[in-house]
Design a protein around this nucleic acid. Structure first.
Lengths: 183, 183
DNA sequence: GTCTATAAGGGGATAGAC
DNA sequence: GTCTATCCCCTTATAGAC
């Protein structure tokens, strides 16, 4: 499905997305100007426009690896039992939430980011798949609340600083599991 | 050509804060211009500056009722047993999170809002008091994670649409209580 | 790929009339 | 209290040189 992507000289784009992701996490999307991204990279705005046509395109590109990870989790869950699938998804979501400076978390928290992603079909598709795995068939209202609660929980909990990564991971998986143990 | 009809909008300050709070919740603080607030009220930007010296001042003013509510909860908790205090705080936080358009939720989610509030002592003081009630003495790392998780959980869960308010409230209290049942 | 330069517009904020 | 008018800076985005 990928058309071109002939960019073996991988300095520009990945570095740009990393810087953008960090700034989005710190200040939010609306609070991050292209100028500030350029400054962090030591280049000018025009250099950024050479690689991306618009700010929204950068936002989507930052989210893309996360969306790909969500797709993998949903695939993995689909090839096993419901219970095992839920465990896989929970562990995977925790890993996503604790990875690299909260890029995943900001996708759920930042209003500007949400607005863009809610109009980005690939994201919505994967979110729906993940939700279906975690909810199961015919979910009760209580279960829906528990899912929303758990979603917000990892987004914020994943950014907790000052803990051993392994401790954080274990505690978050426990918290997620407990949150979703609703009838 | 109608130049301008009488603006039958409500009285200045409360009306302004209501509009600002709604817009902050929808688009985030950075995503909300003073112009957009003025537009929603049917006035000009200059009219807003008659009541507030800066945008930050509006943000703080929007947060103030929530901060006052937090103070009340912490006070109530201080005048009873630890267990009863925790229950009071949990119920109060759920009420805050589900009340009026997610003003409370945005305080925890929006990066720009957080940045302003983290430098606003009255907010930090009340948050510390609430956290102390929920954590208890000598909290384990797991308990700290559970608290962060629960904080994110209500912020997101409180905005869930399409449920009976009473159902949402009960389910959120249950979710919060369960999340904080960590040793 | 990166630069300089600039367009075109919006942002926060202020002055002063009514 | 609200208006008009304005200031100045920053924003997104484009054009074209190297």
């Amino acid at each position: 499905m990928v058309v071109h992507t002939r960019t073996p000289r991988g300095q520009g784009r990945p570095r740009l997305l990393e810087a953008a992701g960090e700034l989005f996490a710190e200040r939010g999307v609306s609070g991050t100007s292209l100028q500030s991204i350029a400054d962090r990279l030591g280049v000018t705005k025009a250099a950024i426009y050479h690689q991306f046509a618009s700010k929204d395109e950068i936002v989507i590109a930052v989210a893309e690896p996360v969306i790909a990870h969500l797709a993998e989790l949903a695939d993995a869950a689909a090839s096993t039992t419901p219970q095992a699938g839920r465990a896989v998804v929970i562990a995977g979501l925790v890993d996503l939430a604790t990875a690299q400076r909260g890029t995943a978390a900001i996708m759920r928290r930042d209003p500007s980011m949400s607005q863009i992603l809610n109009n980005h079909e690939p994201y919505m598709v994967q979110i729906a798949r993940i939700d279906a795995v975690l909810l199961g068939p015919d979910p009760s209202p209580e279960r829906r609340v528990a899912l929303a609660f758990a979603g917000g929980g990892i987004a914020v909990g994943g950014e907790l600083a000052g803990l051993e990564p392994a401790t954080l991971r274990t505690a978050l998986i426990a918290a997620m599991t407990r949150a979703l143990e609703t009838p």
